[in-house]
Design a protein around this nucleic acid. Sequence first.
DNA 1: CCGCACCACGATTCACTTGG
DNA 2: CCAAGTGAATCGTGGTGCGG
Length: 288
Amino acid sequence: MSYQSVDQLQKVLTAKVFHYAKDSKKAAGRALGTLVEIITFYALKSWGFERNVAIERPLPEFGNDEITHNVEYSLHPSNLLMKMKFSRDELPITAKKIANNQKLADLGITAESMKSNALLSNDLILRNSCTVCDCGETFINAYLDQLRKSGGQYSIVSLRRRPFAIFECKRVGVEEGMRKGPQTIEKAKQGAYVARTVSALQKIRLTNGSMGGLIQKRDGSFRHGDYYNLMAEIIASDDSELLSRFILTVGVVSNHGNWFTSENHNKELKVLAQSYDWLLFLTDTGIA
DNA sequence: CCGCACCACGATTCACTTGG
DNA sequence: CCAAGTGAATCGTGGTGCGG
């Protein structure tokens, strides 16, 4: 099934699927937003990051734990703890059941850190992964590896609290009758705000209009320079002092064809592009 | 006055969690 | 296992300001 454009797909969803909703276009747009998230997840998986992914976790602003933002996907340093096989008659598999395992019990998981998530149930729930518990500097996720008729297997992984990258997914639709880009810049501002506040490497605008970078070292001294050069240096280095609180920010946006032309970028696009370290566009053909 | 560009908020929707 | 509550995402609307 394929449509000429995402806009067309949204119209079909509006008419054929969400016709019952009070605002069916909105419901269709929301569904497309979910689609962008799913595509992003499988992109991450295909790049070999499945064991690093956490979903919708609160990420504190850099140096300001008071304010946190739920980010779509965050990638964390991870350690495989163990793999577990299970049979169908053990379902449902919940965080509680997973944590009851003796090897995990030895880690000293407290009751209040325990989540009430389910990884897999008999009928309704089938997750790629779920969080089992929070242990302060780390948290434990379970990932569903295999599911067959008789049973399957999941992995239990310990993830460090601080991510090394975050991915935010956004969908903006075409307003009826509008030829220009989206009017709702709120979303761009929100995404931009998060992208600019979470990493130790901070963006500062230089007088010549280029983007400068600034990062403070443990002894209080600063490293600064062209933002993108500095970022490349940090990523390529094995300096744990610089790496430990650096977070790469990535935005994934569904393009609806009128955010920009080859020479004319509109404001919302510019706001996002200069705020994320990396901005990816899903084209019409990509989504369709 | 009209058309256009722009801004920010409100209404609505749905997934997920929680408490019983 | 279900109903109610929570949170965040999407799109539409009301309103302002400007130039012709």
